Amino acid sequence: MKAAVRPGSGGCRISSAADFSAWIAERSAMDLAEPFTFVVGTDGALRLAPRRSEHVACAGGDVVLSAGEIGFTREADRWAVSEVSNQSTGYCPDVTSWSAVARALDDAELGRPSGFTNEVVFRRCPDCQEHNIVREDDFVCVFCDSDLPATWNMDPTA
């Protein structure tokens, strides 16, 4: 997927309230009706793209601290996050990546929840190497029935 990323195809970098205000002003009511694709780059900045964008493209093919989907709502005098998840099958981020998301949202002066509103637990099967989404705390590979590790193991360099 990374090979298909074209230069300049990354998401919009949001590192301040002014950046977010300029970006959100260009969105339609229909855009705001569904979540957007997001990543937090290694620079700590939030990047946003339309929902149907691939996370790897949103990140410009780079490594990220977190990725997922995010929705916004207007609250009194500022924008706030209405929903946010780590749902990204391109990066499969751990739920512990929330701290990077929180910092990026705070930098953009966006109201936010205290954690992901929808947490997705990803694990790679040590036997067949397939990626799994763990549901209902059932740490068993859906492909080969092997036990999945209790700790996050999606980054092959970790």
Rank of each mutant, 00 (worst) to 15 (best):
M1T: 08
A3C: 02
A4N: 08
V5G: 03
V5I: 13
G8W: 05
G8M: 07
G8Y: 05
S9W: 13
G10C: 09
R13A: 15
S15W: 01
S15A: 14
A18L: 10
A22V: 14
W23N: 02
I24T: 06
I24H: 07
I24S: 09
R27S: 04
M30A: 15
M30S: 14
D31C: 10
E34Y: 04
F36V: 06
V39N: 04
V40L: 02
V40K: 01
G41A: 12
L46P: 02
A49R: 05
S53M: 15
S53L: 10
S53V: 07
S53N: 11
H55P: 01
H55T: 05
C58H: 08
A59R: 06
A59T: 05
D62S: 15
V63H: 02
V64P: 01
G68L: 09
I70V: 14
I70L: 11
G71Q: 01
F72D: 06
F72W: 09
D77S: 12
D77V: 05
D77P: 01
R78H: 15
V81N: 02
S82Q: 12
S82D: 12
S82F: 09
S82W: 11
S85R: 06
T89A: 09
T89L: 14
T89D: 08
G90E: 13
Y91N: 02
C92R: 10
C92Y: 02
C92F: 09
D94W: 09
D94E: 13
D94V: 06
V95P: 00
V95E: 08
T96A: 13
T96P: 00
W98N: 04
W98M: 07
S99L: 14
A100T: 03
A100F: 10
A102G: 00
R103S: 12
R103T: 13
A104H: 04
L105H: 01
L105R: 05
D107G: 03
A108M: 06
A108G: 02
E109Q: 14
E109A: 14
P113I: 11
P113C: 09
S114C: 10
S114M: 13
F116T: 04
N118S: 15
E119Y: 01
V120G: 00
V120L: 11
F122Q: 05
R124W: 00
R124V: 15
R124S: 09
R124H: 06
C125E: 09
P126Y: 07
D127S: 13
C128R: 07
C128W: 06
Q129L: 15
E130W: 14
E130G: 07
N132F: 01
N132K: 03
N132I: 01
V134I: 12
E136F: 05
E136L: 08
D137I: 05
D138H: 14
D138L: 15
D138I: 15
C141H: 03
C141Q: 03
F143A: 11
F143W: 13
C144R: 06
C144Y: 07
D145K: 12
D145Y: 01
S146G: 08
L148F: 05
P149R: 08
A150E: 12
A150W: 02
N153R: 11
D155R: 12
T157S: 12
A158T: 13
A158K: 15
